[in-house]
Design a protein around this nucleic acid. Structure first.
Length: 266
DNA sequence: ATGGTCGCCGAGCGA
């Protein structure tokens, strides 16, 4: 089972790039972030016609997450548990940044797609919100670990874990994506007992998942690695591979992020 | 040093 995470930066603007990618790369499951669409306007029929089951958790203008799956999806949760605001459809999150479901293949895998708050400018209220959101994510991650079943949490974490995950770490030193508090909060989640899938397979610098639209970042390979997969031990046992599909960034009308993949022996 | 780019929508905000 091949599972990808992809921050698409607007589903409407990415129809061609997204359907081309799905056709060529054939993920069994795609976790999408920043759909920037309400559920009613998400082009679900387009993906259903390609053989995907579709679950969305959208909002107007910003954020929004979705799951496309060739296998059935069950027990969908919209919104990160423990939220501070009142979202739509009973979700307790004012911002649509989290969706979770069980993929029913030969074996069930619990999957979470997340779009973690950016947190800039830092310090400030947006940074505080990011750190509180990460606390809540840690609580949910701990619950998933306790189930002792194959589960993963994937998406745009908006965290650069290490120096080697930025082409120019000094340029990010004061940024919410690289501040010590953000990196520590990320480590606190990983250190509960998760496997950070990409780093379990590929050490060393020069591996990025995001290149800014500005200042020719892609052409200069001035990137950062902020899209991650965290696997429970039972899920890590199943991992065959994990890779970044960086060439997608060089295509027509691309997102500023690229897909990251895991292949599970399921 | 500044602005440099996108996408949401149709003015700025968020990234």
């Amino acid at each position: 089972m091949k599972i990808a995470t992809f921050n698409i930066n607007g589903v409407k603007a990415r129809i061609t790039a997204l359907t081309d990618w799905l056709t060529e790369s054939q993920p069994d499951v795609a976790l999408l972030q920043e759909i920037k669409s309400v559920d009613e306007n998400f082009p679900r029929e387009l993906f259903e016609d390609m053989g995907y089951n579709v679950e969305t958790h959208g909002q107007k203008g910003f954020n929004g997450v979705a799951i496309l799956s060739k296998y059935p999806l069950e027990d969908v949760i919209r919104g990160l548990p423990g939220g501070e605001g009142t979202g739509r459809d009973g979700a307790d999150d004012a911002e649509a940044r989290y969706i979770e479901a069980t993929v029913v293949g030969d074996r069930a895998v619990r999957i979470s797609g997340l779009y973690l708050p950016n947190g800039n400018p830092a310090p400030g209220p947006k940074f505080d919100y990011k750190l509180r959101w990460m606390d809540r994510l840690r609580a949910r991650a701990a619950d998933l670990l306790a189930a002792e079943e194959p589960a993963l949490l994937a998406g745009d974490y908006n965290v650069i874990p290490q120096e080697e995950d930025a082409a120019r770490p000094d340029a990010w030193r004061e940024d919410a994506l690289f501040r010590p508090e953000s990196r520590a909060a990320f480590r606190r989640i990983v250190n509960l007992g998760f496997t950070e899938a990409f780093r379990a397979r590929t050490p060393g610098p020069g591996h990025f998942t995001f290149w800014d639209y500005q200042a020719g970042a892609w052409n200069r390979n001035d990137g950062i690695r902020i899209d991650h997969f965290l696997l429970t031990p039972q899920c890590a046992d199943l991992m065959r591979d994990c890779w970044i599909e960086s060439e997608v960034r060089g295509r027509e009308k691309p997102s500023d992020h690229v897909p990251v993949w895991v292949d599970l022996a399921v």
